[in-house]
Design a binder for these strands. Structure first.
Length: 637
RNA sequence: GCCACUGUAGCUCAGCCUGGUAGAGCGGCUGAUUCGUAAUCAGCAGGUCGGGGGUUCAAGUCCCUCCAGUGGCUCCA
């Protein structure tokens, strides 16, 4: 009965013990001081409950919130608590699945549409359950018993059928609530005091378009209430940074009911767009790009040739003229192909880098529109590189360098994703394999970390996508680099090689910042509207202390404009404090106060955004400082 | 596009549950104040309550519908 086993701990210590103590008891004995809240354990690397009783020799380690597996266990236990609460309120609700996610957890239910009142009731029921400190009790049963327990829930019976024969079937009991579940779980509901319901929404089963309707409750869990409070605080701060709010406050852009998804760029916003365009254009001149402009719409035949008609039409705005069908271009590639094709080309012209800043139109489903980050009309920093097979790698390496420089300028962090051949694709799989291999080789050769997404490529090419995150941590795709063998073939592109024969170029489609719209949306949230001086619509605001300083302020404004700074001048009939406050709210990088002292000494009192107080310096020193920050495109003023 | 929720002054919101024909703060305008680094005082203007339809003696308020927005789902730069 009292068989001896040996237990090995993470620090390498091994102890002998009789069979009987639980994982939790063994861990306490090993490290009585504890390591903060232990949620569960791993036994031979496999997650188990703290109530698990080791019956043979093995290794035992604690799982805390710091480990992803531990964190997931807490989230999943929280999901059980939500299910318990829902079933208590709506007895005929059928729980389906409730996994942990990147952010927290959710649980999907087959149930009538939920209401905000339901959510209040769920929150209250969860608080009660936490106060009652109910155990998560593991119940292992045989198949027949499992089928009986899952009983009235066809979804659970479905999951049961998916469990391989011979594998143990377990349920977890929390109070009166019983759920089919692999586990493990936290020991009891006391561990779930830091759980918060984020919201609910309707979804469709399996995430597919025509799936059965389900109700999803989303939440997030932390080991303690203070940690939850910290999370909620950060979240509130992030929400206050929403680019849609900032765009309105700073008068950058707006939208109208009568043009859903189409941004209106106000004067302040337009300054930023033009500066971004100038930033990119300067790089283009340095890096051998030529700029083009091609039609905003084409006859259907062009899109039939490019493949858009077959693969992208549902995302295009269509129109009709002269009895012919036209489409608004969703991408610039067809126009670029047609310019390449317009005359015979020599290998001496390659790589031919054609850039285009043209408005593109995509018919995005209404439910997907979101501020500036998902719109129906936008402009990309787009270019098409026509290259020989040998030039591909060199061009890609140049692009990766530009990405580094560009995103560093904005102090953004970004990540790479390699997207491979989708289900619907043009051309020959072997060409896709070749293109994918080249992209992979360049990424690896540059020592870049990236994720791989099979099936996520564009219909005409595999791609390297660039993602940045917004203030709520939601990732957004900005740039994309696509290696395309299809479009040149479909447009019959050719150049004459040194060998005198005709060859087909390869096309690299690339946009780096992505679209001005999405990029600016993310950037605004990133910096809370405190744009670097070179992008600020107003770079300097002059505050005359009193009316008698108005004339001097106007003259200074004129001189600063001559130095190519964007300047405005506040009126003098409000208090200085109020005008300084307004300038801070307007996120103006530089404030200059002019009073008797400054006028008398030809100095200015310069207040720099983000710095406390102000300093008095000569007008020329102040001007030089501001001009330098703007010209160097410094991130901070 | 799907589901739920929301739509009141330029902005943020109260009023809606329990129908009796609109309210605050900020902003704007006017006047006073001329001030030394995050909100000076007073007055005035501003809304056919998202559009349409219905119920009712009476609709911002209740019902239907369309549009838009928000949160998710799917999709995507």
């Amino acid at each position: 009965m009292s068989a001896e086993i040996s237990v090995t701990y993470p620090d390498g210590r091994t102890v002998s013990t009789v069979v009987g103590p639980t994982a939790g008891e063994l861990l306490r004995k090993w490290n009585p001081e504890g390591f903060g809240p232990v949620l569960a354990a791993t036994w031979d690397g496999r997650p188990v409950d703290l109530s698990f009783v080791p019956a043979s020799s093995g290794t035992l380690a604690p799982l805390t919130f710091r480990e992803r597996a531990g964190r997931d266990i807490l989230q999943h236990s929280a999901a059980h608590l939500v299910a318990k609460a829902i079933v208590e309120r709506i007895p005929n609700a059928l729980p389906t699945a409730g996994p942990p996610t990147e952010e927290g957890f959710y649980y999907d239910f087959d149930v009538r549409p939920l209401t905000p009142e339901d959510l209040d009731a769920v929150r209250a029921a969860m608080d009660r359950a936490v106060a009652e400190d109910l155990r998560f009790e593991r119940v292992e049963v045989d198949r027949a018993e499992a089928a009986r327990l899952a009983g009235s829930n066809p979804h659970k019976l479905g999951y049961l059928a998916d469990i391989p024969p011979g594998s143990p079937v377990s349920f977890y009991r929390t109070g009166t609530f019983l759920d089919l579940c692999l586990g493990p779980h936290v020991p009891s509901t006391k561990w779930l005091a830091g759980v918060h319901i984020l919201g609910f929404s309707a979804i469709t089963a399996g995430g597919v378009k025509d799936g059965d309707p389900r109700q999803r409750i989303r939440g997030v869990g932390f080991p303690t209430k203070p940690e939850l409070a910290e999370f909620l605080k950060l979240r509130a701060v992030a929400e206050a940074r929403d680019h849609r709010t900032l765009g309105q406050k700073l008068e950058l852009f707006s939208f109208s009911d009568e043009a859903p998804g189409f941004p209106f760029w106000h004067p302040n916003g337009m300054v930023i767009v033009r500066e971004l365009e100038r930033f990119v254009s300067e790089h283009y001149s340095e890096d051998g790009y030529r700029e083009i402009r091609t039609p905003l719409m084409f006859a259907k035949s062009v899109f039939e040739r490019s493949g858009h008609w077959e693969h992208y039409r549902q995302n295009m705005f269509l129109t009709e003229a002269d009895g012919r069908e036209f489409g608004w271009k969703p991408m610039n590639c067809p126009g670029a192909m047609m310019i390449f094709q317009s005359r015979a080309r020599s290998y001496r012209e390659l790589p031919l880098r054609l850039a285009e800043f043209a408005p593109l139109h995509r018919f995005e489903p209404s439910g997907t529109l979101h501020g500036l980050t998902r719109v129906r009309e936008f402009v990309q920093d787009d270019a098409h590189l026509f290259v020989t097979e040998e030039q591909i790698e060199g061009e890609l390496v140049r692009l990766l360098k530009w990405i580094d420089r560009a995103f560093t300028t904005f102090r953004l962090t970004w990540s790479y994703e390699l997207s491979k051949r989708p289900a619907q694709f043009l051309g020959d799989p072997s060409e896709w394999d070749r293109a994918e291999a080249v992209l992979e080789k360049v990424l690896k050769g540059s020592g870049i970390e990236y994720t791989t997404s099979p099936g996520e490529g564009a219909f005409y090419a595999p791609k390297i996508d660039i993602h940045v995150r917004d203030s709520l941590g939601r990732p957004w795709q900005t740039g994309t680099i696509q290696l395309d063998y299809q479009m040149p073939a479909r447009f019959g592109l050719e150049y004459q090689g040194a060998d005198g024969r005709l060859h087909r170029p390869v096309v690299i489609h690339r946009t780096i910042l992505g679209t001005w719209e999405r990029f600016l949306g993310v950037l605004l949230e990133h910096c809370d509207g405190r744009l670097p001086p070179w992008l600020s619509p107003t770079q300097v605001r002059i505050l005359p202390l009193a009316e008698r300083h108005d004339a001097a302020a106007d003259q200074l404004a004129g001189r600063l404009r001559t130095a190519h700074l964007r300047v405005d001048r506040a009126g003098s009939d409000e208090t200085l404090s109020k005008r300084v406050r307004q300038a801070e709210i307007d996120r103006i990088p530089y404030l200059i106060v002019l009073g008797d002292q400054e006028v008398a000494n030809a100095t200015v009192a310069l207040r720099v955004r983000g710095e406390k107080g102000q300093k008095t310096l000569s007008e020329s020193d102040a001007t030089a400082r501001m001009v330098r920050a703007v010209e160097h495109r410094s991130f901070d003023p």
